[in-house]
Design a protein around this nucleic acid. Structure first.
Length: 602
RNA sequence: GGGCCUGUAGUUCAAUUGGUUAGAGCACCGCCCUGUCACGGCGGAAGUUGCGGGUUCGAAUCCCGUCAGGCCCGCCA
């Protein structure tokens, strides 16, 4: 029976006989004395075996290899002076192994080295295929631990301090329009009908408010059948919350205390409260994005009014056709960014082009305050305009001004990306800083050009500001996102709780009364029976853990993630199924393997 | 659906840019070593250079196709 975990042993245990279980992290064989680093999830402790002092274990110690599983019984003893290892928390002691029992050997060559001492980066394909070994490694073991600690802190705060109740909602539910593509499952019992996996528990949590649950939360699995990214998986976990009878400010305050509690408990970090707030309009204006990274400056400056009548057609034309001209001022940018990089073919040009821009105009501010740029700009700006440009952008000698000109929805994303690329390159991002901020007052809708209709920016249950109900098309929403260092980690809103308003919103996004009734009739009906004002929020748990663990991929915050092709390399899911299974489900596959290309043969 | 990057021993990388026998660290196997902690020493085994085709006297290297993994766009809160 285990008496201790490896990583918990200290000098205070000296003299005790302990029994440990774990994996051989490493073995150092000196011919006479053998050292074994024994590892379990808490850490490593050194085991000693030699023929004279521990004859009972020496033979087995000889046979041990990396990652063998063993039971060890022995006495904790203080290490000699000079033999102490300050790098290990257990480095002051070691265990003289009276007994070593080999519980299981490794029968195959390890696909990669597991040892904590090996920091070599292993191909991710291998890590995913042998995930159980990868999870033994220190980095991933720590990430799992961090994730656990975050969830635990959430539960303690919400349940113990704030009277929240966890309620599970169905995984088998119905397909809903709007939002992402659903994963669907055929119903065997109800032939011809389909379940969908939930994109989020949105509808259920609102119904729980109608049910009087008052404060709901759930660590909820969500599913969206869309293409993957470094921060997106087809199944992911949300901290999902919904509350009745609270104002937006009360909800934000509660969430600030929640987030503060998480950082305090998990990492011992005090995040200052209240969190700064930016309106959506302000965020777009100053950063060109609704999730700005505010750890560094490089704020955008709009100059549309200044250049609207200039002779430089790129600028004046952009403004005349309803667009804008904005500047990204880069202090000391002249030294860092050459013209070649801004012009076609250059890397910054590519960044801008990817966002849809045709190019980046620029002005360099020289020592005397002289401006250095292409003739077309220089010649078409008056001295006053130049002066105003410099003072408005705060330009100093050495400053590089990059211009975006065109439609708003090109200029903003372009300068946002360029801003991030430059901040990274110029090392302007303080690594250890945590900038949490709320972005509020989102528009209710945004125009979807493909479908030629308005679309809910957040989701169609978001409440408009009461003062904006008159004109829903341009209304602002009572919605809020929590942003951490440029990542959206949570978002929510006050919900519509009057069926009339809900119907109007459905109408605005082009959902007919009949369609709304068919898709969401159950919700609208529930709202007829006494619905409390309510609102909520959902956090991307994986993304939060990723950031707290200092990882750059969401996969490193998830025990068993999928590849970018949405495959699980461990289980080889998805897989084909028997024809019989399909038949029972009343499903036939239309898939036909592509014929092999014959070009190679002939 | 599209763009870019990567794929060489179990693994992490190298291979003088098309040149003859594809190397090294760690892991693995054998021998030696009683205080190491990334122990050390000696020796050994280990390769369809992802796969298929092409160009060439000659291909890990160049070309085409294909598969897998990654980053991104589209898509997605």
């Amino acid at each position: 029976m285990r008496t201790h975990y490896c990583g918990h042993l200290r000098a205070s245990h000296t003299g005790e006989t302990v029994t440990l279980f774990g994996w051989v992290d490493r073995r150092r064989d000196h011919g006479g004395v053998i050292f074994v680093d024994l590892r379990d999830r808490t850490g490593i402790v050194q085991i000693v075996s030699d023929p004279e002092r521990t004859p009972g274990s020496f033979e087995t110690a000889n046979d041990l290899r990396n990652e063998y599983v063993v039971r060890i019984t022995g006495k904790v003893s203080q290490r000699q002076d000079g033999a102490v290892n300050p790098k290990l928390p257990t480095g002051e002691i070691e265990i003289y192994a009276d007994e070593i029992e080999l519980l299981n050997a490794v029968r195959k060559q390890l696909p990669f080295q597991v040892s904590t001492a090996e920091a070599e980066s292993v191909r991710e394909e291998l890590r995913l295929r042998y995930r159980y070994l990868d999870l033994r490694r220190e980095r991933m073991a720590q990430n799992l631990q961090t994730r656990h600690a975050v969830v635990k802190a959430i539960r303690r705060f919400l349940e113990d301090a704030e009277h929240f109740m966890e309620v599970e909602t169905p995984i088998l539910t119905r397909s809903t329009p709007e939002g992402a593509r659903d994963f669907i499952l055929p119903s065997r019992v109800n032939e011809g009908e389909w379940f969908a996996l939930p994109q989020s528990p949105q509808l259920f949590k609102q119904i729980l408010m109608v049910s009087g649950v008052d404060r709901y939360y759930q660590i909820a699995r969500c599913f969206r059948d869309e293409d993957l990214r470094a921060d997106r998986q087809p199944e992911f976990t949300q901290l999902d919350m919904e509350m009745s009878f609270l104002t937006q400010d009360e909800i934000l305050d509660l969430n600030e205390r929640l987030v503060g509690h998480i950082f305090q408990t998990v990492q011992g970090i005090d995040v200052p409260r209240p969190f700064p707030r930016l309106t959506y309009a302000e965020a777009m204006d100053r950063y060109g994005t609704d999730k700005p990274d505010t750890r560094y400056g490089l704020e955008l400056v709009e100059v549309s009014d200044l250049v609207a009548n200039s002779g430089f057609k790129v600028f004046s034309g952009a403004v005349k056709s309803g667009g804008m001209v904005k500047v990204l001022p880069i202090p000391n940018g002249n030294d860092v960014i050459s013209n070649v990089r801004i012009k076609p073919g250059g890397d910054l040009f590519k960044v801008a082009a990817e966002a849809g821009a045709k190019g980046l105009a620029y002005i360099r501010v020289r020592e005397s305050g002289e401006i250095d740029t292409i003739g077309a700009i220089k010649d078409n700006l008056s001295a006053e305009q130049k002066q105003e440009l410099l003072s408005r952008t705060g330009a100093q000698p050495g400053t590089l001004l990059l211009f975006g000109a065109g439609p708003d929805d090109i200029v903003n994303p372009t300068l946002d990306r360029v801003r991030q690329a430059i901040a990274k390159e110029m090392n302007l991002i303080p690594a250890d800083q945590l900038n949490l901020l709320w972005v509020t007052d989102f528009p209710m809708f945004e125009w979807n050009a493909d479908e030629q209709r308005l679309e809910a920016l957040h989701h169609p249950f978001t409440a408009p500001r009461p003062s904006d109900i008159g004109d829903l098309k341009t209304a602002l929403a009572q919605a809020y996102d929590l942003v951490l260092n440029g990542y959206e980690i949570g978002g929510g809103s006050l919900r519509i709780y009057q069926p009339e308003v809900q119907r109007q919103v459905f109408e605005t996004i082009g959902l007919s009364t009949e369609e709304a009734q068919e898709k969401f009739g159950f919700l609208l009906e529930a709202f007829e029976y006494g619905t409390p004002p309510h609102g909520g929020i959902a956090y991307g748990l994986d993304r939060l853990v990723m950031l707290m663990a200092g990882e750059e991929s969401i996969r490193d915050a998830i025990a068993f993630p999928k590849t970018q092709q949405a495959r699980c390399l461990l289980t080889e899911a998805p897989s084909t199924v028997d024809a019989q299974q399909l038949k029972e489900l009343h499903v036939a596959s239309t898939y036909r393997p592509k014929p092999k290309s014959e070009a190679a043969d002939s």
